[in-house]
Amino acid sequence: MTFSMNKYDKILIIVILISSLLLYGTMEWFVRSTTSDQTVAVVSYRDKEILRVDMKIDDTYIVQGTLGEVFIEVESGRIRVEKETSPYNLCSIQGWVEYANVPIVCLPNHIVVMIQNSEEDPNGEDSVIQ
């Protein structure tokens, strides 16, 4: 019995590589096409919403996490955790987030930042007339 690589292995490897790229492409396209122009970032501490940030306004916000203050910065439609106190600083290393597919999670601080489409529909004025 031979154990070396054969052509079936190569086919399988190519199939997996192509399908991972296709999956990535589809997901990126899906997220970009479903993210509207008006987004808000919802900041929660231990699953409770503590702050709702308009992504249109550039500003810096400070929230209280488990290990200390977490500085959240919004700039030109993007959001990031600027600095925070944690063993590995993973969420400030993560950098800017623009679309709703990637949450920023500061696990040691129990802070989660998620981007959502804001409820205000730009064409919604007609529907509220009674």
Binding site: T2, F3, S4, M5, N6, Y8, D9, L12, I13, I16
Partner: peptide, 15 residues
């Protein structure tokens, strides 16, 4: 069902 070698099996199993 296939003639994959341990390398291919390992890649599929990892995926």
């Amino acid at each position: 069902k296939s003639k994959l070698s341990p390398v291919g099996l390992s890649v599929a199993s990892s995926a």
